[in-house]
Amino acid sequence: MAGALLEVEGLRAAYGPSQVLHGIDFAVEEGGITALLGANGAGKTTTLRAVCGMVDRSGSIRFGGQPIEKDSTESIVGLGVAHVPEGRGTFVKLSVEENLRIGAYGRRARDGVAADMERMYQHFPKLAERRTQQAGTLSGGEQQMLAIARALMLRPRLLVLDEPSFGLGPLIVASIFEIMGAVRRDDRVSILLVEQNAALALELADRAYLIETGRVVMSGSAKDFRDNEQVRRSYLGY
C-alpha cells in the first residue's frame, strides 16, 4: 500500500475500561475515497475519532508517511485533516460566515481565505444567501453543507466525514453526495467516509472496509463490495 495518504495498522481504542477497537487496518489512497461500513456500534465513529486523536488510541497511524498516532488533535488538523464530526459540529451561535472563517483557523497558508470563502459560496449557494445568519437557524441539510464547507476551508488533504446523510431527506443527501464528488475532482481532496447508507457510500467510494465489533471483517474495492452476495443482503438490502 505504498503511496497511501493515510495508513492505519493495528489501531486499538478504548473508552475508559471498555475496549472498542481491537486492531483495525485500513488505508486511504491519495485522491481516493474510502468508506467504512458496518452496523451501529461497530466502532466506525470511534475509528474516525481515533485517527484524529479524540480518544485514547494505540497502533500505527501514518499520514503522508509521517506517524501521527502520538499527535494531538490540533496538530493533526494542522497537517491537513479536516474532520466533520457526528452531529456536524456547527458553531450554532456564530454566523455562517464566521463558521467558514473558523474553518480556516488551523491552516498554514493564511492567504486566499477570502477567495476560498467565495468558492464555498459558489459550491453551496444556499450558504451565500444566509451568510450573516446565526448557523443554528439553518436547516439540517444546510448545516451539513456548512459543515463540509467549513472543513474544506482548511484546504485539507484528507476530509473525514462521519455520517453526512444522517437525518436528512433523500434529495438533500443526493445533492450533498454530488457536491462531494465535485469537491474531490476540483480540490483533489481524499475522503474517509463513514456512512449508514451503504449503497450511497459504495457509489461514491473506490475502497471499502466492513467493520464488526471493532474489527475489519472484509475489505476490497467498492465494486467487490457491490458484487458480494452477503454484503448486498445485509447492508444494501437488494
Binding site: T73, V77, H83, V84, P85, F91, L94, Y105, L154
Partner: peptide
C-alpha cells in the same frame, strides 16, 4: 480578530473547536 473568534468558538463547542485546530 481571529483569536477572538477562536475563543468564542472554543467556548461554544470545545470538541468541534479542536477539530478545526483551535487549542
Amino acid at each position: 480578530t481571529p483569536l477572538g473568534l477562536a475563543m468564542r468558538a472554543a467556548a461554544q463547542n470545545p470538541e468541534s473547536a479542536r477539530l478545526v485546530g483551535i487549542r
